[in-house]
Every structure is written in structure tokens, then in C-alpha cells.
Amino acid sequence: MKNLVIATRGSALAMWQSEFIKSEIEKKHGINVELKSMKTKGDIILDTPLAKIGGKGLFTKELEESMLRGESHIAVHSLKDVPMVFPDGLKLAVVTKREDERDAFVSEKFASFDELPKGAIIGTTSLRRKMQLLMLRPDLEIKNLRGNVNTRLRKLKEGEFDAIILATAGLKRLNLEAKFIVPFDKDKMIPAMGQGILGIEAVDEDSVLEKIEFLMDEKALIESTIERGFVRVLEGGCQVPIGVNAEVSGETVKINAVVGLPDGSEFIKQSKVIDKKEYQKAGEELAKEFILKGAKELLKRAEDMV
């Protein structure tokens, strides 16, 4: 294979991610890698919450169709946006080394989450973030915030929000700044499945897969396998209030998980530590524990609230 084509969204963060992978492949193999930029439905419809228009698969469908047509070979996603099921002929081939997976409190007015006054307006699209913010502070007003990272920061600077919540990884990758950026403790604000990891979806062909296999990170593989297993068994999809984070430390893995209603009024939250060797089934087993506590019924009610 002489040339490799990466299908990518056109946002600044998506382009950074694709440019990074392009550079790594070119350095490793000395081949030419091209970027094929396109808009997805999720990039075009910005006035409606994702949960109402189909969830995060909206950010991957057009890229997948490009690969299936033979126009491109791989697509680089934020793993938290990657659905559980892939079309025939495509697969999640690689997960890369994890960047800081924490959510970040971002504000121009207040130095920390604890300093927010009663009734402060917080911007986020994520039902997971909304749920956990209201679990911590039921007095807050949560407003929908769509658009790319730069657009969200602009709305913050223009005074539409007292604070917004963004992924720390995206802020770091784009070298973006605001007056106050404070990452949340992962025990307080459990991140999304796969947050901070890049997932490379690829055409299921050896000539393509062998070009990207060197990018696989074992720690990220263990953590994401647990997190994706948890969400898959709960059948939660990307747009219901589920937080799950696995962190490898030596020979053990700490797992934090939460499931609940978007308004934070009811939730199930649990932490556990497992032996690293048990990682392949750990997410699924934790999900079954949550199901016994009523997680499926809670998520059904959460969907009805959207």
C-alpha cells in the first residue's frame, strides 16, 4: 500500500487527532497519508441536543460510509463517540495512549466549581455531566451547549454561561485557554467511556491493519475494554447518563461507575478494584451488578426524560 487515506470531521479537534495519527504513520512507515475532510450530521445540526437526534453515531456514520465505499481506509475518533456496533467490513482496530480523561470546570468568572453561586448557569450537552453536576449541586441551572470546543469557549467568554464543562483532553490537545480551568476529581465526576483515548476505526483488511497496529496501547486497551463492556451490557448507547472509568495501577484496576436520571434525583454509583488479569469480563460483570440494582429501569426512565 502506497497511500493511506484518513476520513475525518473538519472540526479543529478532529483535524488535530487525524493530523497526529497521520504524522505517526508517516514517521513509522514512510508512506504518504492523506486526509479526507467531511461534515457529519452531528456537525450540521447544532440547535438540537444530541439525544434528540440520534446520539453520537451521528459523528461517525458519514466517515464509515466513506470507508465502505473505498474512498478512505481509516477514521480517527474520540473513543467516547464510537458506537458499540460496527458495519460489516469495519472494526475498531486500535486504541491509543490515553490523554487526561477528566472533565474540566471552565470559567471566566469563578476559580472553582465550589465558588459557583446558587443558580449559576452551566453549559453542557452531556446528560452524564448534567446528572453528576446536579448530584453535586441541585441548585445549578444546566443549559444545552452544542458546537465545537472553540465555539463553546466563545459562548463562555461572551457571558452566556457562568461556567462550562469540557473534556480536559481536548483542551490540552488544542492548547486552549480560559481564565480558570480546573479538572474534576474522577470520584466526583466520573468520565465518559473511552474519554481521552483515540479510537481508530479501519477497513478490516490486513494491508490496512498492519499499518496502524503499532499505535495500540495496552493500558488504554484494558481500560477501554472494561468501560465499553460496561456500557454494552447496559445497552445504554452514547446519550444516556452513564459514567464509567477504569484506571490501571500496577496489577490492579480501579473502576468507578454511575448510572442515573438526567436531573440527578436518582442514581446508582459504585467503585471496585479488580485484578488486572480479569479485565476482559470486568465491565460486563459490573454492569450485571448494576442491573440487579435496577439500572435498566433507571436508564429507561432517563430516556423518557430526554
Rank of each mutant, 00 (worst) to 15 (best):
L90W: 02
V106Y: 05
V85A: 10
V95M: 06
L92W: 11
E64F: 14
K61G: 09
D88T: 00
E62H: 01
E101D: 13
R98G: 05
G54E: 15
F113P: 05
G54K: 04
V85S: 08
D103N: 03
D88L: 04
E62T: 04
E101T: 02
D100K: 13
S112I: 03
P49M: 08
F110P: 00
G70F: 03
A51V: 07
D100I: 04
V95I: 10
L90T: 02
M67F: 10
P87R: 06
L68A: 09
F110S: 13
S112Q: 01
D103V: 02
V85K: 14
D81Q: 08
L50N: 13
I53P: 12
G55V: 00
K52W: 03
F110K: 02
D81T: 07
A51F: 12
E65F: 07
E108L: 11
P49Q: 06
P83C: 07
K109P: 00
V82L: 03
D100Q: 04
K97Q: 15
L92H: 10
K61L: 10
L68R: 11
F86C: 03
F86S: 04
K52N: 12
E64L: 06
H77Y: 14
F86E: 11
A93E: 07
S78M: 10
K52C: 10
F110Y: 09
F105C: 06
G89I: 09
L63W: 09
V94G: 00
E65Y: 02
I53L: 12
K109Y: 00
A75F: 11
T60R: 01
F86R: 03
A111P: 10
K52V: 12
V106R: 02
H73Q: 13
I53M: 15
P49D: 15
S66C: 15
P49C: 11
L79Q: 04
R98I: 03
V106D: 13
S107H: 00
S66G: 12
L90C: 12
V82I: 08
D114Q: 15
F59T: 08
L79K: 00
P87M: 00
V76I: 09
A51S: 15
F113E: 06
F110N: 09
E99F: 01
K56Q: 08
S78C: 04
K80W: 15
R69L: 15
R69W: 02
V106W: 08
A75N: 13
F86T: 06
I53F: 06
M67H: 08
L92V: 11
V94D: 11
H77I: 01
A75K: 05
P49V: 10
G89S: 09
A104C: 11
R102G: 12
F113Q: 03
V85H: 12
L58N: 14
T60V: 13
F110L: 10
P83R: 04
S112F: 06
L50C: 03
V94A: 12
P83I: 05
E62C: 08
A111L: 09
K109C: 09
G70E: 12
D81R: 01
S112C: 05
V76P: 09
P87Q: 03
T60M: 13
S112N: 08
E71L: 05
S107E: 00
S66R: 09
D103M: 14
T60L: 13
E71V: 01
P87W: 04
A104E: 07
H73K: 07
K97P: 14
F59Y: 12
I53N: 10
S107L: 00
I74W: 11
K52A: 12
D81P: 00
L90P: 09
L63F: 08
D100W: 08
L90M: 08
P49H: 03
A104F: 06
H73Y: 08
S66A: 15
